[in-house]
Amino acid sequence: KITVTFNGEEKARRYYKKMQKHNLKVEIRVENNQWVVHVE
């Protein structure tokens, strides 16, 4: 499981979509004013 933190929504969403293309289970959320993407 990987957790990647971004300081911008745009970058986070781009990464999220990229990971989805690989058929990975991805989850995006905001934690402590940071955009966090969890990849299983």
Rank of each mutant, 00 (worst) to 15 (best):
residue 34 Q to R: 11
residue 39 V to C: 07
residue 40 E to Q: 11
residue 11 K to E: 15
residue 3 T to K: 09
residue 40 E to D: 09
residue 18 K to T: 09
residue 34 Q to W: 07
residue 27 E to I: 11
residue 14 R to K: 11
residue 16 Y to R: 03
residue 32 N to G: 14
residue 31 E to C: 09
residue 25 K to M: 08
residue 3 T to E: 06
residue 13 R to G: 02
residue 26 V to G: 02
residue 13 R to N: 05
residue 11 K to P: 15
residue 39 V to D: 00
residue 12 A to W: 04
residue 37 V to Q: 00
residue 14 R to W: 12
residue 3 T to D: 04
residue 3 T to M: 08
residue 20 Q to W: 05
residue 5 T to E: 04
residue 27 E to V: 10
residue 8 G to V: 15
residue 8 G to Q: 15
residue 6 F to T: 01
residue 27 E to N: 06
residue 15 Y to Q: 01
residue 24 L to C: 13
residue 25 K to E: 06
residue 8 G to R: 14
residue 15 Y to V: 02
residue 8 G to M: 14
residue 29 R to V: 11
residue 24 L to R: 08
residue 35 W to I: 03
residue 7 N to H: 09
residue 29 R to D: 05
residue 1 K to T: 13
residue 27 E to P: 00
residue 2 I to S: 06
residue 16 Y to H: 03
residue 31 E to W: 06
residue 9 E to Y: 14
residue 39 V to P: 00
residue 18 K to W: 15
residue 38 H to A: 10
residue 11 K to Q: 15
residue 2 I to D: 03
residue 3 T to S: 09
residue 12 A to L: 03
residue 7 N to S: 13
residue 37 V to A: 01
residue 15 Y to S: 01
residue 23 N to A: 10
residue 2 I to V: 10
residue 13 R to V: 08
residue 3 T to H: 05
residue 27 E to D: 07
residue 26 V to Q: 01
residue 11 K to Y: 13
residue 15 Y to D: 00
residue 10 E to L: 11
residue 30 V to G: 04
residue 14 R to L: 12
residue 33 N to Y: 05
residue 5 T to M: 11
residue 1 K to A: 11
residue 32 N to W: 05
residue 1 K to D: 07
residue 14 R to F: 08
residue 16 Y to Q: 05
residue 39 V to S: 03
residue 19 M to Q: 03
residue 39 V to K: 01
residue 23 N to L: 06
residue 11 K to N: 14
residue 19 M to Y: 04
residue 36 V to T: 07
residue 35 W to Y: 04
residue 16 Y to P: 01
residue 23 N to R: 07
residue 34 Q to S: 07
residue 3 T to G: 03
residue 14 R to Q: 13
residue 23 N to Q: 08
residue 28 I to G: 00
residue 4 V to E: 03
residue 8 G to T: 15
residue 5 T to C: 15
residue 7 N to K: 10
residue 24 L to W: 09
residue 35 W to C: 02
residue 38 H to M: 14
residue 11 K to G: 14
residue 17 K to A: 12
residue 27 E to H: 07
residue 6 F to V: 01
residue 16 Y to G: 04
residue 6 F to G: 00
residue 23 N to D: 06
residue 31 E to N: 06
residue 31 E to F: 07
residue 10 E to D: 11
residue 13 R to P: 03
residue 20 Q to S: 08
residue 39 V to Y: 05
residue 16 Y to W: 06
residue 25 K to T: 08
residue 23 N to V: 04
residue 38 H to S: 15
residue 13 R to T: 06
residue 8 G to D: 15
residue 16 Y to C: 14
residue 19 M to T: 02
residue 17 K to F: 09
residue 34 Q to H: 09
residue 31 E to L: 11
residue 40 E to M: 13
residue 28 I to Y: 02
residue 1 K to G: 14
residue 5 T to V: 14
residue 36 V to R: 03
residue 27 E to Q: 08
residue 32 N to D: 08
residue 37 V to S: 00
residue 32 N to E: 06
residue 22 H to S: 09
residue 9 E to W: 13
residue 27 E to T: 14
residue 10 E to S: 10
residue 3 T to A: 07
residue 35 W to M: 02
residue 36 V to K: 04
residue 17 K to D: 11
residue 13 R to D: 02
residue 7 N to F: 10
residue 40 E to S: 13
residue 2 I to K: 08
residue 29 R to C: 12
residue 26 V to P: 03
residue 28 I to R: 00
residue 38 H to T: 15
residue 21 K to F: 10
residue 40 E to V: 10
residue 13 R to W: 13
residue 12 A to E: 02
residue 33 N to W: 04
residue 25 K to Y: 09
residue 5 T to Q: 06
residue 30 V to F: 15
residue 22 H to P: 04
residue 28 I to V: 04
residue 34 Q to L: 14
residue 21 K to C: 12
residue 38 H to Q: 13
residue 35 W to H: 01
residue 12 A to Q: 02
residue 38 H to V: 15
residue 17 K to V: 10
residue 2 I to P: 02
residue 17 K to W: 10
residue 8 G to K: 15
residue 5 T to F: 13
residue 25 K to W: 08
residue 29 R to E: 07
residue 5 T to W: 12
residue 9 E to C: 13
residue 8 G to I: 14
residue 11 K to C: 15
residue 24 L to M: 10
residue 12 A to S: 02
residue 21 K to H: 09
residue 38 H to G: 04
residue 15 Y to M: 03
residue 11 K to V: 12
residue 37 V to K: 00
residue 22 H to D: 06
residue 2 I to M: 10
residue 25 K to V: 09
residue 18 K to V: 08
